[in-house]
Design a protein around this nucleic acid. Structure first.
Length: 597
RNA sequence: CGGGGCGUGGCGCAGCUUGGUAGCGCGGGUGCUUUGGGAGCACUAGGUCGCAGGUUCGAAUCCUGUCGCCCCGACCA
């Protein structure tokens, strides 16, 4: 490809819309353009990158025995109603774009494809003899994100590889799950990104085991916790740990103290010389359940800890046997709207009486009380007295009405003690989720009635797995992990071009002739070469080359008359002057060769 | 959804407080010079100041509404 024909438009200024380095560089380098919030055009350079990633993914998936397919993007509501996800995905903060066709039928734009694939599988797969099957596709997904951001990182339209496997039993599912785990490691390492595999919550998709693949980067949206030895790694939503011990609070008896205006843990601590771990804080939350019920929760947790709402949601779902749509803070305004009187927020205790809820218009009249281990394990502590400006000191659970059962609803955090080795403390890192694998089990096959006939002639629901990779997100994550002040440094395997042959001065015929010759030789040997034949000053071409991040550069310049060129490696910023034949041989030796193009 | 900010040539921004008929840098075009790290000079094209109302002799500027975009947050009261 010739740069003069590439529609290469690079920007000198940082576009105002872009916050993080990878987003800025992709826009400046002419890789992407925003069309509207969270929706981007992939320009020709970007499309080359996407295609290279896609090719790697296809090769690896194909060699694992998976079958490529292409599923529709328009999904009938009926299918999603059968799986029970239509309401959750469309109502309220629902993430699915949806519309009505001219007959008034409801249609959703696919955010994920479990429903469609399961319905197809149930029609085509009838016998255990056909199993296992793993189907995958690479195509655009639509999600109406609450807040799209960071370019392709969280966009509303994005390219994803998703795979769904079908099995006759759980053991077979685990085999494929493990296989895909290693396929993913190959894919990410071939794409030149460093990833960490972490235990994850299975979230809205549902199911049992699940693992996320994170590209480590400071700008990542996810917090991951790892042990120093690397044995343990988990998303914060899922991470478990042993909290640091509480500082004992010793008091001969319980007493009430005036604590005027000390509404927060930190105010209470500084005014009374306390440690946050000596306090039980009480948080009131309103859980909105999938059937529309509104259930107030009273959460007790140690003052130095925070509530993990994913863990909380999971516990509630298990206890109530129904999904939780949303968790909202209980505020003065919400109490008021229920016709209830205000509560002494900041001074609440775990024994807050249910009577404060009586007469609520739509809420349930009693709290579900959930106590974290950290609070339940305290022998003697401080908590609110349920009266404005008063706290109780030296209380114990017995005097508050009995020992609660401790549950794990806390966020693990850096510094906590590792379960597998108490001598190690958890570390915090940020990550960008680019892959997620799940053992779905029979959730969808049951709800969608997808079954096969087993060896005994009995109908049985499929065991399913699903496996995703954010292709467009991966492309940007690679930039986030591989760049410097000058621009992008693409990993060679996914770079839009492998080599950029820069003719320093296009007016100089010797340079021009030599540049063309090198370019043709590289191309005929199967290398992916770009020829910068633009009538620009050399500096412009060098800057652009650095910005768009082509890993190798051959500069045909002032030594062209003696047949010498410079060979530059973008990442290392290494330059050496050598004969052009030597440069060509070195490139051919360094780069994997494909068929000539 | 809550809070904050911003919409002015293709891009980045100033002007708005204190109303008087729109400007800077980059980019584009032409010419001359230059030619190895985003060149210099000259000329030039390009904007109903997001949109709709209102106030005023007069609105980018003030008021109202509306649309769009960006950032932070969306359990620790």
């Amino acid at each position: 490809m010739r740069a003069s024909r590439l529609m290469l438009v690079t920007l000198r200024d940082v576009p105002a819309e872009a916050e993080i380095a990878s987003h800025q560089l992709l826009v400046r380098g002419g890789f992407i353009r925003r069309i509207t919030s969270g929706i981007y055009a992939y320009l020709p350079l970007m499309w080359r990158v996407i295609n290279k990633i896609t090719a790697i993914v296809q090769e690896e998936m194909d060699s694992s025995g998976a079958l490529q397919t292409l599923l529709p993007q328009l999904h009938p509501a009926e299918l999603w109603e059968r799986s029970g996800r239509w309401n959750g995905y469309t109502a309220g903060e629902g993430i699915m774009f949806h519309l009505k066709d001219r007959q008034g039928r409801e249609i959703g734009l696919g955010p994920t494809h479990e429903e469609v694939i399961t319905s197809i599988a149930s029609e085509l797969l009838r016998s255990y003899k056909q199993l296992p099957v793993n189907l995958y596709q690479i195509q655009t997904k639509f999600r109406d994100e609450i807040r799209p951001r960071f370019g392709l990182m969280r966009s509303r339209e994005f390219i994803m590889k998703d795979a769904y496997s079908f099995h006759a039993n759980e053991k077979d599912l685990k085999i494929t799950y493990e296989k895909i785990d290693s396929v993913y490691r190959n894919i990410f390492s071939r794409c030149g990104v460093e990833t960490v595999a972490v235990d994850a919550d299975s979230g809205a998709i549902g199911g049992a085991a699940s693992q996320e693949f994170m590209v480590t980067a400071d700008s990542g949206e996810d917090l991951i916790l790892t042990s120093p030895d690397g044995v343990y790694a988990a998303n914060q939503e899922k991470a478990i740990s042993i909290p640091l011990p509480a500082k004992p609070f010793i008091a001969k008896k319980t007493y009430k103290l005036k604590t005027p205006g000390q509404k927060s843990i930190s105010q209470l601590c500084s005014s009374n010389n306390l440690d946050p771990s000596q306090i039980v804080k009480v948080i009131l939350i309103l859980a909105i359940l999938e059937d529309g019920k509104e259930q107030p929760l009273l959460i007790s947790i140690r003052g130095d800890q925070e509530v993990n709402d994913v863990k909380l949601t999971n516990i509630l779902t298990a206890r109530l046997k129904k999904g939780v749509t949303n968790l909202l803070p209980i505020t003065k305004e919400r109490l008021c709207a229920q016709g209830l009187s205000d509560l002494p927020f900041g001074f609440l205790g775990p024994d807050l009486n249910n009577s404060v809820l009586s007469g609520a218009k739509t809420w349930s009249n009693s709290f579900i009380r959930i106590t974290d281990h950290t609070a339940a394990d305290l022998e003697s502590f401080i908590c609110g007295a349920n009266t404005e400006d008063e706290h109780l000191f030296g209380v114990n659970w017995l005097s508050l009405g009995g020992n609660p059962k401790g549950l794990d609803i806390r966020k693990a955090k850096a510094g906590d003690i590792c379960h597998h080795d108490p001598s190690q403390n958890l570390l915090e890192r940020r990550g960008i989720e680019i892959g997620h694998i799940f053992q779905l089990g029979r959730k969808y096959s049951n709800s969608l009635n997808a079954s096969f006939t087993n060896e005994k002639g009995i109908q049985e629901a499929f065991w399913m797995g699903c496996y995703g990779i954010g292709i467009s997100r991966l492309a940007q994550a690679a930039v986030e992990q591989n760049h410097d002040k000058e621009g992008i440094i693409w990993p060679i395997s996914i770079a839009p071009f492998e080599v950029n042959v820069v003719i320093a001065n296009i007016q100089n015929s010797q340079q021009r002739v030599l540049g063309e010759k090198i370019y043709k030789r590289l191309k005929s040997n199967g290398l992916d070469a770009l020829l910068d034949d633009r009538n620009e000053r050399a500096g412009v071409k060098f800057k652009d080359s650095d910005l768009i991040g082509i890993p190798w550069r051959v500069v045909v310049g002032r030594d062209a008359d003696s047949g010498q060129v410079e060979l530059v490696q973008r990442g290392r910023r290494e330059t050496k002057l050598l004969d052009h034949e030597a440069a060509i041989s070195q490139l051919l030796a360094e780069l994997p060769q494909r068929k000539p193009n």
